[in-house]
């Protein structure tokens, strides 16, 4: 009888240790950081691209005004036009506050999106949005500095689509990263985030 109690006691101790170890790894101090990366400050970014007007651009030029950056491609039928529409509506809602705001769309599809293609595409949205086009090496560098991912996915018919980070990145006027607006966030969540980024020092 005592030995039965003893083995039951040992089993309970063993299970308790296992649970504690699991907690430590998953939720406790042993928890690994989220893989999601945070962009470096715009002042520390060094890459060149061409904007939709055909002029050379550099992230340093954005410093001095609050900045909104997002990634996409013009062959994207659902997420990208929806994000561009959201951004256009936020800009209208912000009124004068949006006058001192850089808004940059960086294409993740340099193969199909040249300067003219991006210019034509953006002509359908709020003119505050500027398009940036880089070559593959420039895009890789930008993606690293912004901490975003993009991946070409073949659709099996000779065409392809690109899975990419869909959030909108906000930077303060001094170039420091402030916060992101995720794809599914509502206008009620997005507008205060942009305002805070514009006005905080």
């Amino acid at each position: 009888m005592t030995s039965a109690f003893k083995s039951a006691g040992i089993a309970i101790c063993f299970v308790t240790v296992l649970i504690a170890f699991g907690w430590w790894q998953v939720d406790g101090p042993g928890k690994k950081d989220e893989p999601r990366n945070i962009p470096v400050s715009l002042t520390n970014m060094d890459f060149q691209m061409t904007n939709h007007l055909g002029l050379a651009v550099h992230p340093r030029e954005l410093v001095g005004m609050p900045t909104m950056v997002f990634f996409g491609f013009t062959f994207c039928p659902d997420i990208c036009p929806t994000t561009l529409n959201d951004i256009s509506s936020w800009i209208s809602a912000l009124g004068d506050d949006a006058k001192s705001l850089n808004v940059v769309f960086i294409t993740v599809d340099p193969e199909r999106d040249n300067v003219d293609a991006v210019a034509e595409y953006l002509s359908y949205f709020n003119p505050t949005v500027k398009g940036w086009v880089g070559n593959q090496a420039q895009l890789r560098e930008a993606a690293k500095l912004f901490g975003i991912t993009y991946k070409r996915v073949e659709t099996g018919d000779g065409e392809y689509t690109i899975d990419h980070t869909s959030g909108v990145y906000l930077f303060r006027a001094d170039g420091r990263f402030a916060r992101t607006i995720d794809y599914h966030e509502s206008r009620e969540q997005a507008l205060p985030k942009i305002k805070r980024t514009i006005f905080e020092r």
Binding site: P35, R36, D78, I79, T149, V153, T155, T161, D163, H164, T165, S166, G167, T180, D182, Y183, H184
Partner: peptide, 16 residues
């Protein structure tokens, strides 16, 4: 028919 989904890491994907 396609479905768009966004992962926990914020990556948008489209699948037939």
């Amino acid at each position: 028919i396609h479905e768009t989904s966004v992962s926990a890491e914020g990556v948008g994907t489209m699948k037939p």
